[in-house]
Design a protein around this nucleic acid. Structure first.
Lengths: 331, 331
DNA sequence: TTCCTGAAGTAATTCGCATTAGCACCTTGA
DNA sequence: TCAAGGTGCTAATGCGAATTACTTCAGGAA
């Protein structure tokens, strides 16, 4: 001890220069000196218990954070999350202990949920269990979802990517290049982000007066092409590659006969050599922003909802529509 | 409440069937029912405070865990760490708050160290501050280093890669293929792992009676080749690529004129298309094992030190030594 | 009836810190 | 000289669980 009480040490540590609490500079220095010598650090657990905060942000993912595959869905988000966490001086807690019940996905609330250990948490995943969301909301646990989420017993705080305008812009581009028959390839369901893309497509079609068709991913490329579609908007990145390959196999030239536009969803790892036209999801920025918003929530409360714009990328797979003498592509 | 005391709940939660503590099955069931209904979970912070453990393992890295570059030094280790943490039901705490003092690396013990929040921690990095190690040791904080570390005021618990035998085996292979003049390219210092590689090289040279030379990475390739060396053992992976490129530029054919063997260090991101012969560092396994050992330390104490074997990989850059009519390579 | 021995559960204490109330001392001003 | 007000610090309390030490009760033996 430096000859003072535990209280004094606490006050010095927390830099309290408040109105009603004063510490003589000399005393403060004495305490700091002792701290320096002993290398004392306050126990974060006790701190949390007493104060209610511990500068730890949880990160919940429904699958492993560090996947064995190199094509890594979470990684870009995590880069942003880590950057921002470092800036605001928070540690990151990965809920790796949340085991999945045989075969199922992880759940946030299992028998021994650890979420409360963190001040708040960031949810990462293509989809999030509505039950989990509802419970998070109900228990008043501060959190931010990365990716837009529909209400779940109340508004859900999120940072999402703004798909509809991006898809719409892409549709307009295609139409400006003469495309009249457009195809959307993808489920268009299975999460808000997929639905948003499809919605953007429909909006674009409506706005431009083009002919828009929706193909599920399992429709053979032949059928898609035979339908007279000259530009396809592909939800899933891996499907872009599949379509490009299939097109090459049957002599359909990309982009002269068929334009391919990617809508950026990356759920399956894939090797890419083509430079697809489409848009980029601002994953890193979303990660950063999620942490910022979480910090705000912790500070002042609220239920922020934000959509970040997607960045259009010029690739090599969009070309003017083929000259339509007939309804069939050449070759 | 379910009509019982806090103590009873605690006892039920912790499944205490101990000798001197009994709970009537009926009471137990009543408590469990209440827990189920309210969805109660024990506050981990309080738990840690009272019990001393909270099933959180810290992961300390000297740089960002999620680097922007895709070539990612930490990633394979983290895959293993996460796998094992999940198996033993622990969460992972990333010390992202450990800011570096302007320009310098992060330090484990900064003004407000958070290490104590975790039960123990895994240290990741090519090198680790000896001061940090010493302090960790002195304060009795359980930890395991990924990568062999020399003593720092006491033995350091680690899981390392066993470089010397791997390099030695590689040297023997080269010698078996007729190589007599071998070159080691790399600093051979800057961390235990580098020193171990160089040591293995020297051992190999001594064991086979070959002629071994040591070149620092900045020696021009011309000088290396001119020295009559027919096989180079390259510490740093990026240097392999650089050497292969330089060789191609001056008409030195790999592997006919010059064999290149990689010793697996990956400190700089690099694009690779060559399939280098050499060995693979068992990064993922090291991560797994580190967590296992940490769990053991937490359980029973001790200072485990382990070296995992490197796996030799056959690539395309090792060939029989060129026919030495003169001392100079063809071309 | 009294004493004793489990069985079942509870009050009280502890962990390390933040916070609140309050105490002792020192200036002032009247 | 005494009250009023300010200064600098400390005793006491609370956070939410784990743990220890103790109480109550029932049944059996003496």
């Amino acid at each position: 001890m430096a000859g003072v009480s535990q209280t004094t040490v606490s006050l010095v540590l927390n830099k309290r220069g408040d109105a009603d609490v004063r510490i003589a500079p000399e005393t403060r220095e004495r305490v700091l000196q002792a701290i320096r010598e002993t290398g004392y650090v306050a126990d974060p657990a006790a701190r949390r218990l007493a104060y209610g905060r511990n500068r730890i942000l949880g990160v919940f993912t429904y699958e492993a954070v560090f996947p064995a595959e190199s094509a890594d869905f979470y990684h870009p988000f995590l880069v942003g999350i880590e950057e921002c966490a470092q800036e605001i001086g928070c540690d990151l807690l990965l809920f790796t202990s949340a085991k999945a019940a045989s075969g199922a996905r992880r759940r946030i609330f299992n028998e021994e949920s650890r979420v409360r250990l963190a001040d708040g948490c960031v949810l990462l995943g293509r989809t999030v269990d509505r039950e989990d969301l509802a419970r998070l909301l109900a228990e008043g646990i501060p959190f931010v979802s990365v990716g837009r989420r529909d209400d779940a017993g109340g508004p859900v705080p999120y940072v999402g990517a703004d798909y509809p305008p991006a898809v719409l812009a892409l549709v307009e581009r295609a139409v400006a290049l003469g495309h009249r028959r457009l195809g959307y390839v993808g489920a268009g369901t299975g999460g808000e982000s997929m639905a948003d893309r499809l919605r953007g497509f429909h909006e674009g079609v409506a706005a431009t007066g083009a002919d828009g068709r929706h193909f599920t991913p399992d429709v053979p490329l032949g059928d898609v092409v035979a339908s007279g579609v000259t530009a396809v908007f592909v939800e899933e990145y891996a499907d872009c590659v599949a379509i490009a390959t299939a097109a090459a196999e049957r002599g359909v030239h990309v982009p002269h006969d068929l334009s391919i536009l990617t809508l950026g969803a990356l759920t399956r790892p894939v090797q890419v050599d083509t430079d697809f036209t489409g848009f980029r999801i601002p994953r890193r920025e979303m990660g950063r922003r999620a942490v910022q918003l979480l910090a705000e929530i912790l500070e002042t409360g609220g239920t922020p909802q934000e959509l970040l714009p997607c960045e259009l990328v010029d690739g090599t797979t969009l070309a003017p529509a083929p000259n339509l003498t007939g309804d069939l592509p050449r070759g």
